[in-house]
Simulated assay, not measured.
Amino acid sequence: MSAQKPEAGCGAAIRDDTGRLLLIQRLREPEAGAWGLPGGKIDFGEPAMVTARREIAEELGIEIEILGLACIAETIDQGDGRHWIAPVYEARITSGEPEILEPEKHGGWGWFDPGALPSPLTTAALSYLSAIGTECSAQ
């Protein structure tokens, strides 16, 4: 039996008033080059919703309100041999305008209509789209 254990992360599906989804492009594994939901690794003792708000403030300089749990995403061995489990929350921006604050980690960001998503998408983004019943033509 392997000594490796799953790791925990979290993310947020942030939508604007028109229904567009905020996505960021990952530059690091897992899933380097793919577009996904903002978020990050959960620190020991930190509740996942707190992590989501903290990570998104660090990545994009925005404050969010968590509206509810959308789904649980699971990413297994997508290029780095690791296994991640991540709650994905639905959220909205309460203050700030998105900007890339960690250019070593993220190549860009944008608002995307669910019918015109960039490719490829991360496992978490695909899990979210599946959970809300959105067909994905990007993959």
Rank of each mutant, 00 (worst) to 15 (best):
E58L: 15
D17S: 06
W84V: 04
Q78M: 05
A8M: 14
L67N: 05
R26S: 00
G68R: 05
P118Q: 07
P118C: 03
D77C: 12
S130A: 15
P6W: 07
I85P: 15
E99F: 10
I64E: 08
T94N: 00
Y128C: 05
E29H: 04
G81F: 04
A125V: 01
A34D: 07
G110N: 02
P30K: 09
G36R: 09
E102K: 15
S95K: 15
S137P: 00
T122C: 06
E55H: 03
P47S: 00
P114V: 00
G108I: 03
R82S: 08
R92Q: 01
V88E: 13
H106C: 11
E65T: 10
I24P: 01
S127G: 04
C136W: 15
E104T: 06
E29L: 07
G9V: 02
R28F: 12
G9D: 11
A57S: 15
Y89F: 15
G61K: 08
E97F: 05
P98T: 05
D77M: 09
I56K: 06
G11V: 06
F112M: 04
R53N: 05
S2V: 01
P87F: 07
E104Q: 08
P118V: 02
G11I: 02
I93V: 01
G36S: 05
Q25F: 09
S130I: 08
G33D: 04
D77F: 06
E97S: 11
L23C: 05
A138G: 02
E102D: 13
L37R: 04
S130H: 14
P38W: 02
P6A: 01
E90C: 04
P30F: 06
E59W: 15
G81M: 08
D113M: 05
G107D: 01
T134W: 15
Q25C: 08
W84Q: 07
I85K: 13
Q78C: 09
G39Q: 06
P120N: 06
H106N: 12
L37G: 08
A32Y: 00
I76F: 07
Y128N: 06
P118R: 00
A138P: 06
A13S: 11
G110F: 03
L121Q: 03
C10E: 11
A125C: 09
G79W: 00
P87Q: 10
T94L: 07
S2F: 01
E97L: 07
L60E: 03
A116H: 14
R54Q: 12
A34M: 08
H106G: 04
C71A: 14
L60Y: 13
A3T: 10
L69K: 14
A57I: 11
P118Y: 08
R54T: 09
K41C: 13
K105N: 12
I93Q: 00
A116K: 12
T134S: 14
E90I: 02
S127L: 01
W84F: 14
W109H: 13
A73N: 13
R92A: 02
E31R: 08
E58H: 13
G68A: 02
K105P: 04
D113L: 03
Q25W: 09
K5T: 14
F44A: 14
G108S: 00
E99V: 06
L126R: 15
L126I: 07
Y128R: 05
A3D: 11
L23D: 00
I132Y: 04
D77L: 10
S130W: 10
T51R: 11
I132S: 06
I66D: 03
P47N: 07
T134R: 15
G40L: 14
S95Y: 13
H83E: 03
E46V: 15
E135M: 14
P98C: 00
H106R: 11
A34G: 03
